[in-house]
């Protein structure tokens, strides 16, 4: 028997097999990472029947990896947070760790922490904007985020939403941002005058160091859109934007650490925003 020739034949056979297996593997991985075109087409048709209009190119084909974000309460260490906001010359007025209630004061203002959130009031006298010389929304946003930075909040992790002016004061809501994505559910209400921030109230969390990735991917957006269609009974709807974000349930905001979970954010042209838990597809009210 010619072993040399037999080996050559075996090598060729195995190499051919390897090429074939590599192709199968790549094909499997590629198809698993994408939502099939047919599924998207059928979803769009189904939505159409339910009076919901969406363009196929608005639906991302890519399957997204499921990742949670661990968020740490900005006030987890009350004294340290108070120093950031009120400065080094802060005085502790009330300290009740058992019930988590703290009050701090300094020449800069007063800070009250409790299990329902926090509030800050500046001690300076308010100076409202002159109605005739109000800055634009962009300038006001920039001015206020700089002021937040001065109070110890990292402006890169702050996103301003819902800005409006009333009686010379700007009222706005800030939500945390992680990796350029808003985290819904956590927010603080800000009132600002022409010189800076007058009051802050609400909750604030920052993304912790640990952000654990999961093996699974998020539920396909097509499944979530189907869920939306099944629940939709009202007027015709035109979807303007589909995106992903994170959400922290307000049930758990009185905590030291929470997990923000991935969600799908579906916006319609009438201004409606529909949030869905991207892990299980349930609607978030």
């Amino acid at each position: 028997m010619n072993w040399g020739r037999a080996k050559t034949i075996l090598i060729v056979m195995f190499l051919v097999t390897d090429v074939f297996l590599l192709f199968v593997l790549m094909q499997t991985k590629f198809s698993a990472s994408k939502i099939p075109e047919k599924t998207i087409r059928e979803t769009v048709q189904f939505l159409g029947k339910k009076q919901i209009q969406v363009q196929p190119d608005q639906i991302s084909k890519k399957r997204i990896k499921s990742e949670n974000i661990f968020m740490v309460n900005f006030f987890k260490e009350p004294e340290s947070a108070a120093k950031k906001i009120l400065g080094e010359d802060v005085i502790t007025v009330l300290q009740n760790p058992a019930d988590y209630e703290y009050q701090f004061e300094s020449p800069r203002g007063k800070l009250h922490l409790h299990d329902q959130g926090f509030s800050y009031v500046s001690s300076k006298e308010a100076v409202p904007y002159n109605i005739d010389s109000l800055p634009g929304a962009e300038a006001a946003t920039s001015f206020i985020t700089d002021a937040l930075q001065g109070l110890g909040f990292d402006k890169a992790t702050v996103s301003i939403v819902n800005l409006y002016e009333q009686d010379g004061f700007y009222h706005l809501t800030a939500v945390p941002v992680c990796g350029g994505v808003n985290i819904y559910g956590i927010n603080m209400h800000i009132v600002a005058d022409s010189e800076g921030i007058v009051t802050l109230e609400g909750h604030w969390f920052i993304a912790g160091e640990e952000a654990k990735g999961e093996e699974e991917t998020l539920l396909d957006i097509t499944t979530v859109l189907t869920e939306l269609a099944l629940k939709h009974t009202g007027e015709p709807m035109v979807i303007s934007e589909i995106g992903t974000a994170y959400y922290a349930s307000d049930d758990f905001l009185g905590s030291l650490e929470i997990t923000a979970v991935p969600i799908y954010v579906i916006k319609d042209e009438a201004g409606g925003v529909h949030l869905f838990d991207a892990r299980v597809g349930s609607a978030i009210e």
């Binding site: 499921s66 949670n68 988590y100 299990d115 999961e214 699974e216 349930s249 049930d251 758990f252 009185g254 905590s255 030291l256 650490e257 929470i258 997990t259 979970v261 838990d277 892990r279 299980v280």
Partner: peptide, 9 residues
């Protein structure tokens, strides 16, 4: 994968 998780006060 689907639980909610937090650390309370």
């Amino acid at each position: 994968r689907t639980m909610w998780r937090y650390t309370d006060l």
